[in-house]
Every structure is written in C-alpha cells, then in structure tokens.
C-alpha cells in the first residue's frame, strides 16, 4: 500500500482528515465535537485496528501532552510501518479534569507498557489494563503526577528537603522567571499555543 492509498482509505472509511506535514508522517485527529465519548472511543479503536490490518506493524509509542490552558490532555498513538514506510500518529483529546480512557492492549500489546508510563506521568486511567496502575519508574511517589504542567518541582523539593538539599533555589527561581517572560500577543501575532 502506498501513502496516498492510506490517506484515501482512512478518509473513505472514517471520514477523517489525514494530514501529512512532512514526508513519511501522517496525522489523524479524532474530532472532539459532535460525538459522544463512546463513539469517539469506538472510532479510535476501529482506526487502530484498521491501521493494523492495512500494514502498520509496530506501535512505537503512546505519549501524552498536557494542554493546561485548553483543559485537555492529548494522547498520541504512534504506529510505524516497515513496508509503506510511514509513521501514522492518531491524536485523541481527553478531558483534563477527569482523565479516564480505555485500553487498546487487546489490539496492540506494546500498549501495556506505554499506558503504564502515561498513567504514572500524567494520571490518565486506562480502563481494562490492570498493569497501568502499577508504578513504572518512580518508587514511593507521593505527589501529583510529575509531568503535569501544574506540578511544581521547586515546591516539591521544598517539601522534600533531603532531596533538594545543597541548592538554595530561590535566586535561581527568580532568574528563571525573569528570563522566561511570556511573549505578548502582539509579539507572537496571536499564534501561541499552536498545535503540535
């Protein structure tokens, strides 16, 4: 199967827009509007199953991005094909306040580990994957998931002084805040928070 045929097949079967930002990369977003949660989950599972059938052999990753201003998590399912050869990324938006989702382990076995990692780093619950609730790399973790944008590492180190000892973070925090001022809307032309 060629890349053009993959794009056309997904558009015909699911009615989804497939964009190809640069060679060997395809991106599909499951639309957030106009559908119930159940329908969107079913569409994601159908799409991942269909991609497996048309020649994507390898699930490379499941990652999560925290868009805290929009109040959503974006899950990225990366599928690689050795024959086409192309990476297909399926994007799925989750509610940030109540991040509950379903597992895709029965379709893609590597998802067992990826979902475990996303659960530990972002707190997304994958219903149906019992291993996702086990700790992945962190031991004895006692705070909110560390890769969420509202996790404050400096505050965490203040609460764990043995771990943060040896560095008085305050002058450096001031320095960092001074250097990292948010650009104004005039400077960016209103493009901030552009989609990845």
């Amino acid at each position: 199967m060629r890349v053009e045929e993959v794009i056309k097949a997904i558009q015909d079967k699911f009615g989804l827009e497939v964009e190809s930002p640069y060679p060997r990369r395809l991106r599909v977003r499951i639309p957030a509007e106009g559908k119930s949660e159940e329908e969107r989950r079913q569409m994601l599972r159908d799409l991942l199953q269909y991609a497996k059938e048309i020649g994507f052999q390898h699930m490379s990753f499941i990652t999560c991005v925290d868009f805290i201003k929009d109040g959503r998590f974006e899950l990225n399912y990366g599928l690689w094909s050795y024959t086409i050869p192309t990476m297909l990324v399926v994007k799925y938006d989750l509610d940030r306040e109540n991040p509950k989702h379903i597992t895709v382990v029965d379709i893609w076995k590597p998802a067992k580990t990826w979902e475990q990692e996303v659960h530990e780093m972002f707190g997304v619950e994958f219903d149906g994957n019992p291993r996702s609730f086990e700790p992945y790399v962190l031991e004895d973790w006692d705070s909110i998931p560390p890769l969420r944008k509202d996790f404050d590492p400096v505050q965490y180190l203040k609460e764990h002084p043995m771990q943060g000892a040896g560095y008085d973070p305050l002058p450096y925090v001031n320095l960092v805040e001074k250097n990292l001022e948010q650009p104004t809307v005039e400077e960016t032309g209103g493009d901030e928070g552009a989609d990845s």
Partner: peptide, 19 residues
Amino acid sequence: PINGGVYWDSHATVNRLDL
C-alpha cells in the same frame, strides 16, 4: 552529585550525594 547540576530542580534526582 555535588549540587544537582543542571538537574537541580528535577523531581527525580537527589542533589547532594555526600549527605
């Protein structure tokens, strides 16, 4: 291991080894 280096504010690292 002396004072945390570039990872001084990481949630995972321990800044001072000699403690």
